[in-house]
């Protein structure tokens, strides 16, 4: 004989097939941007204008000297003052963005591309490829980055392109190591080893699963690294190994104004501030991006 069955709570019966809530993290997505990030964005926006259309922000020519206006302190006419041969410091800082940012960017691209190729080859290759590559990265990172760049630039000779290559080579081990370890990790992941069961070829598995998953952390690291590269580039330019005077590069400007620092602070402080604020802004943005990026379901 059967008796009636007590009603089962719904929760035990159907919890497996319910649609999950559409938005898992509403609070995070509605959160406002931190003040630091907004300031960093504003500063970089100004720099970006300086990079593309600097004449919108200043009416002076960065190379034109006015002997009647040497070492003028900051005023309404010259907001950042003038240097010892009467060039407008604001104009030079704005036009300088082009050199500093582009050389920094170029050097990161150099280290990224070479690091990526070696790292992936090492991660995918056999032992005889993998181990030597790892040791090469170890040896390269044993040298301070600036020293390594200095070697390379001394060897290649001074100049804009060579300084980008020099700083770029010093950055290779950083990317190479990350890419190599990510590759080793991803190639053993189940979703990669089992991708062939869908009938994908090796190349398709590489392009659709391996590469994107190896690369997904790279944009953030590269962004933060641009800041580091800019410091290295300015440092080498300061030593006279980069673009030559009268190029309005920030490091060059610092070197040129060093002699007059006792009588006039403005020709040194403003390019110095430009370097500092650029690096800080890029780092702030990169770190903010990284935090949000890592919170995302991977």
């Amino acid at each position: 004989m059967t008796t009636s069955q007590p009603a089962l709570p719904d929760s035990i019966l159907s919890h497996d097939t319910q649609v999950p809530p559409a938005d898992v993290r509403p609070a995070r997505q509605r959160r406002r941007w931190p003040l630091g990030v907004i300031l960093a964005l504003l500063f970089l926006a100004v720099l970006a204008i300086g990079l593309v259309v600097p004449h919108w922000l200043t009416r002076y020519d960065p190379l034109l000297s006015d002997v009647s206006q040497t070492l003028q302190p900051p005023s309404l006419q010259h907001l950042f003052g003038t240097d010892r041969i009467g060039r407008d410091v604001l104009a030079r800082v704005l036009y300088g963005a082009r050199y500093s940012l582009l050389i920094g960017l170029a050097s990161v691209i150099v280290s990224l591309v070479i690091g990526l190729v070696i790292g992936i080859a090492a991660g995918l290759g056999q032992r005889y490829l993998n181990e030597p590559a790892a040791r090469v990265f170890d040896v390269l990172s044993a040298f301070p980055a600036v020293l390594l760049s200095l070697f390379v630039v001394t060897f290649l000779g001074q100049g804009i392109v060579n300084i980008a290559i020099g700083v770029g080579i010093a950055g290779i081990p950083k990317f190479g190591r990350i890419v190599r370890s990510r590759t080793l990790q991803v190639r053993r992941a189940n979703y990669v080893t089992h991708a062939v069961t869908f009938g994908l070829s090796r190349w398709q598995v590489f392009l659709r699963h391996l590469l994107p998953n190896v690369l997904n952390a790279i944009p953030v690291i590269a962004t933060i690294d641009i800041g580091t590269a800019i410091i290295a580039v300015s440092g080498l330019s300061f030593l006279g190994l980069g673009p030559q005077p009268p190029t309005p590069e920030w490091g060059v400007m610092l070197a040129e104004s060093r002699d007059v620092l006792r009588v006039a602070w403005w020709p040194s402080v403003f390019p110095g501030l430009a370097i500092t604020l650029t690096v800080i802004s890029i780092s702030v943005l990169g770190k903010y991006w990284q935090r949000n990026f890592e919170g995302r379901p991977q």
């Binding site: 189940n190 979703y191 069961t197 659709r208 379901p297």
Partner: peptide
């Protein structure tokens, strides 16, 4: 020939 794994999460491309 297809496959059902023990831990499906690790067999799905996280992206």
């Amino acid at each position: 020939l297809q496959y059902i794994p023990q831990d499906p999460l690790s067999s799905f491309d996280p992206r």
